[in-house]
Write a protein that binds this DNA or RNA. Structure first.
Lengths: 210, 210
DNA sequence: GTCTATACTTGGATAGAC
DNA sequence: GTCTATCCAAGTATAGAC
């Protein structure tokens, strides 16, 4: 256990941070024990002392980062109670993620995952992510006839996958991203859907409720 | 130039094929000159003779595979003239891609891409992909009021990104994919949208036409 | 155009001193 | 818990015989 009030984060922590930075800047193919250790300013052997293997360091790094992201998403999603809110918050989270690079680190591990155990862990996190979107979507469409037509779980799955895809494409050249225009469009669609709702057949909006 | 009627594909071709297979089965981190050559049944030095470097072999492999995919998508998209068609064709292409593993190879190169030149080439292909979806979407919604609300380019971008994300997630555990249910839902949504169209304010369906 | 052999580099991982 | 030193495996790439 590290001392209280220490100036220097303990090595374990530094390695986890360094792993995220290396994943972000050099990708999965550049995430080696030597590079990560150099980035953390510690000896290469400590990767193996603390984590046993590079693969495990990357796994732990993934878990820590994605759990952080999930907590942020969960907190942000609590404020959603309209489609318009949902789009606005999604836009904000996307911008923040791009800035911090956290999602890049996550997608690098994700794309390269081969071992079933790692895949399992990743899917578990993706599932939580979908759950958050699902919950937000459910609240956002509670008063809309859309709720009856849409299977909310599937829609949340679609949205989550879309974000993942956008992240990967955006990283190839952030300057040329079309994501901002997509958010503008979704914002307009949300507004229209909300204005149109009263024009549609009533009663259907309760179809999904227990 | 290879002889006509040859039994054995020329080495260059075999290496390109082998690269796709290795990318599919072992991912980007397993795509080494030695493994690809072994898979092709040729000597490792031939990777460098024919392609100069592993990175270039992977690039050529990516270009060949993604161009093939694009041709398939383009051909399939020609048959679309309703949202329902679009969903059905998307489902079929998704199933085929999963079976052949071609998209997996593409996403592996994509996720690991670092050099600007490679990113450039990848984005160019992604752009073509978006273009095909855009064109299909435009035809599918030509008679629908949806066309007025939706910026077709942005919607196509969203759909393409979604497919990319789904591919990456599905590969983690194909058994547990939620994609089939998503297609079912989209199919229902398409049907509803088509039934609902006449109920909405008329005239708007022509708003996007020159 | 293909093979063998080899040079060189990098990376994962461990042993042992401190 | 950290470092030095080291081993071994695997990778890229090239030279040169065939």
């Amino acid at each position: 256990m590290p001392q209280v009030g220490e100036e220097k984060a303990d090595t374990r922590q530094r390695l986890l941070d360094a792993a995220v930075e290396v994943l972000r800047e050099e990708g999965i193919t550049g995430a080696t024990a030597r590079r990560i250790a150099a980035r953390a300013g510690v000896n290469q052997a400590l990767v193996f002392y603390h984590f046993g293997s590079v693969a495990n360091l990357l796994l732990q790094s993934f878990l820590r980062t994605s759990d952080g992201q999930i907590a942020r998403y969960r907190a942000a999603a609590e404020g959603v109670d309209s489609l318009h809110d949902l789009v606005g918050i999604a836009r904000r989270l996307h911008d923040e993620d791009l800035e911090s690079g956290a999602v890049t680190a996550v997608t690098q591990v994700m794309a390269a995952a081969r071992e079933p155990e790692l895949s399992e862990q990743i899917l578990e996190r993706f599932d939580q992510w979908i759950g958050i979107v699902e919950e937000a979507l459910r609240r956002a469409t509670a008063d809309s006839p859309l709720a009856a037509a849409m299977l909310v779980r599937e829609a949340a799955y679609a949205i989550s996958s879309m974000f993942l895809g956008i992240e990967i494409v955006t990283r190839l050249d952030p300057e040329r991203s079309e994501a901002p225009r997509l958010f503008d469009m979704m914002s307009n669609l949300a507004t229209m859907a909300e204005q149109l709702a009263p024009m549609l057949p009533p009663g259907t909006s309760d179809a999904h409720r227990g």
